[in-house]
């Protein structure tokens, strides 16, 4: 339970850490758009290089990045298989056979390339967002930045501030809840509870002694937190000033500009760079 890395801030003082979180969110969006609009092999190569560069300057140990990718294995295998078998090519299939004498299973070289590129796209997506958002940005500054970016929505009477506060609180309590779960599990194990054997139904029932205390303590915590906030005169967002105001420095704008140029480069590359012959009809 303690070793959850997905969504874990890694403290360091790299360029990425010091960047304004709003700029990081925007850059991450630009990169995602770039990833999804890339249709040329050159663009993929360019984006891969970009993500590797980001990883290098972030100062995050490679092992941590790989660890966050591990839960994706299943998704990767699944999408790869589907892509590999569902893509029809022009040439001859690698192999083909009839399943249940109805369904023809075929695999074309195009399918394999497509599977590889799809997997690459998912991997880059997860690593890039992780580098921009979770590893180098604390959850609090992330929600702060989101709130700032979504601020215009308040003119449409959307309570952005309250959503941001709810998100901050939720994020804040994830580790606490994990710890609490851990502790309650230990307490019930000490009374002989068994969570890892028996039928599915038995295992689900075995969770009751964990879930109920967890609910009870969550409600207790919520009440305590609400009281504590009221004691400090919390009345929602109106007129509140901030301890830490975010200010974009020239370097931040420069970073955003570079990100925008990279996105533009992807579009240009899609349109004008010549494609190797084997890529025809793949994407």
């Amino acid at each position: 339970m303690r070793d959850v890395t997905l969504g874990q801030y890694f403290h360091a003082s790299s360029l990425l850490h010091r960047l304004d979180p709003r700029i990081k969110i925007l850059s991450a969006i630009l990169l995602i758009v770039g990833l999804f609009s890339a249709t040329s092999l050159w663009c993929y190569a360019f984006l891969t290089a970009l993500v590797l560069l980001l990883a290098a300057i972030s100062g995050i140990p490679l092992r941590m990045i790989l660890k966050s990718v591990r839960p994706l294995c299943f998704v990767l295998v699944f999408t790869s298989l589907i892509a590999a078998f569902m893509t029809k090519g022009d040439g001859d299939p690698f192999f083909s056979f009839l399943l249940f004498s109805r369904l023809r299973i075929e695999m074309y070289p195009e399918g394999l390339i497509r599977a590889a590129l799809l997997s690459l796209r998912i991997l880059l997506l997860v690593i890039a967002t992780g580098l921009f958002l979770t590893y180098t940005t604390t959850p609090t500054s992330l929600t702060d930045a989101l709130e700032r970016l979504l601020h215009p929505l308040t003119y449409l009477k959307i309570p952005v501030y309250d959503f941001a506060m709810m998100m901050t609180i939720a994020l804040r309590f994830v580790p606490t809840l994990m710890e609490e779960t851990d502790r309650i599990m230990c307490a019930q194990k000490a009374r002989g509870a068994d969570f890892s054997s028996g039928s599915l139904f038995r295992r689900i029932r075995a969770l009751v002694p964990i879930i109920i205390p967890l609910f009870v303590s969550s409600f207790r915590r919520a009440v305590e937190l609400a009281t504590a906030m009221e004691c400090r005169c919390y009345r929602g967002g109106a007129g509140r000033t901030r301890l830490r105001t975010m200010r974009c420095r020239p370097a931040d704008w420069l970073f955003l500009a570079v990100a925008a140029v990279c996105l533009a480069a992807v579009f240009v590359g899609n349109a004008y760079l010549p494609e190797p012959s084997f890529m025809r009809g793949v994407l």
């Binding site: 502790r183 309650i184 307490a187």
Partner: peptide, 10 residues
């Protein structure tokens, strides 16, 4: 009996 064992009651 763990710390704050009253939190384990269910």
């Amino acid at each position: 009996v763990m710390q704050y064992p009253e939190h384990q009651l269910f």
